[in-house]
Write a protein that binds this DNA or RNA. Structure first.
Lengths: 252, 252
DNA sequence: ATGATCTAACTAACTGGTTAATTAATCATG
DNA sequence: CATGATTAATTAACCAGTTAGTTAGATCAT
């Protein structure tokens, strides 16, 4: 009995708080479309997506709890199902959002008008920076890559078609171009591209373990800058024709 | 009713089959320790461990189903709890088994009496071969690395102490030695070692996606041999002093 | 008979998903 | 311009299926 009343009181209290919140927002001039009781459809959707991205990246689809996502998004669980049909679809939306941003960043670098040598460094650098400032992505990516088995993931096909394949094609072409020009060593894109991605992605997804192995945090600004240089150096050394140019243009 | 009888009949049939199996084994002279109803404690344990390794590597701890593990091991689910206290402990046992074998293989290479240049190639080659012939390990490893957050995984500390740290220390020393000798470029082990591991591990854990991107299976014997060469080439090019020796000793 | 090995059947808790109701902005109409 | 219908947004409470883990034995070499 008293529990029930407590709950109801809390509920009512929450309602009032929301009303005040809404008024403040209106005063601040937030654009208001059609409104529900809370009146923030876009904000709610975004909050769910953001909370879901974190939860999925940390726990995986199976480990992620829809309750936890809802709580983090400060939204009722049923709202997840209102906006995104089910858990799997929500996961799909998170992936599309993530890889969409990634593709945009990478294509920006690949569209630049640079010689092969500089362009591949721009690609690696951009990719690195993107991952570094969005550290849930490498986990999301590796989790999904590992799930791509038999009939497991319904998303892979789409992700490959929309994101991975187009990016791979462009980078592959770039490598061939550099090889033909004589700037690059004769490498096989089907091996070199995964190697580059591996070096960028693995460092961040493996950071928690590395912290314990090394005895220091590999994710400080300083260390990340260091890593960036190391990756570019590694790739330069492995890709560029040896004994040709002098400096490798590593330092951004 | 009929369902119940069917089940009982099947059960009885299974029992008889087991008895016959056991007799055959005794005739073949299998060493028999103390026996229970099935009389194969080691075999059962091993079967559970093996099934669990596969299930965990494919689904992760959260996604893994104990029922599925028991079914795969052809053993009753309760037996998992008889031998391994709970799901988490079973997972821990799988990890220890896996990383224990890995450490043994790698240490064998590192203990060899070779010059730095050849030894680092032996290390990479051995590691690669181990992963290539035990493709559940990279997934197990990456899954566990990603789990190493806050208070999440109870295993990381042990794994780092028993496996990762010792291996890292040895390889790190090897690199320093090569650098001092002048055989290697001046690389930072804290970046170079993860890069090597990344290239080896990522290829296998990412294979299902790459199959779709490339349009061919990256896990055929042929492709794996190719990959091996590519990794050794990549690392050689990035690590060895340029313009010094002639061949890189890549082909095993 | 005794203890190691093994199992069918069960349970308690969890979790994805549903439902019926509520709120408030907007729209239609007299 | 008031007001009742409509609709988007949102929630509390609930449900049904799943799953980790338990129990009360059964089997059998010694």
């Amino acid at each position: 009995m008293s529990v029930r009343r407590d709950r109801r009181e809390r509920m009512q209290h929450q309602r009032e708080e929301l009303r005040r919140l809404r008024q403040r927002m209106r005063q601040r001039g937030h654009e208001l479309r059609r409104m529900g009781s809370r009146g923030q459809p876009e904000e709610s959707r975004a909050a769910i997506l953001h909370a879901a991205a974190i939860e999925f990246s940390e726990q995986g689809i199976a480990g992620a709890r829809t309750d936890a996502i809802a709580r983090q998004a400060r939204v009722n669980k049923a709202l997840l199902y209102y906006y995104f049909h089910d858990k799997e679809a929500l996961y799909g939306a998170v992936l599309d959002d993530a890889f969409g941003r990634m593709r945009a960043a990478i294509f920006h670098a690949l569209d630049s008008d640079l010689p092969a040598r500089e362009k591949i460094l721009a690609y690696v650098g951009t990719y690195f920076d993107f991952i570094a400032s969005n550290q849930i992505y490498p986990k999301l990516m590796q989790r999904e890559m590992m799930r791509a088995r038999a009939g497991d993931s319904q998303h892979i096909e789409r992700l490959v078609k929309n994101y991975f394949e187009p990016i791979y094609r462009r980078v592959s072409e770039l490598l061939h171009q550099g090889i033909k020009e004589g700037t690059f060593r004769k490498v096989d894109p089907a091996h070199f591209v995964p190697s580059m991605i591996a070096m960028i992605v693995f460092y961040f997804s493996g950071a928690p373990v590395m912290r314990r192995v090394f005895g220091f945090d590999p994710l400080t600004q300083e260390r990340i800058r260091e890593r960036r240089a190391a990756v570019l150096d590694f790739i330069s050394a492995a890709l560029f024709r040896p004994c040709a140019g002098a400096g490798s243009g590593v330092h951004p």
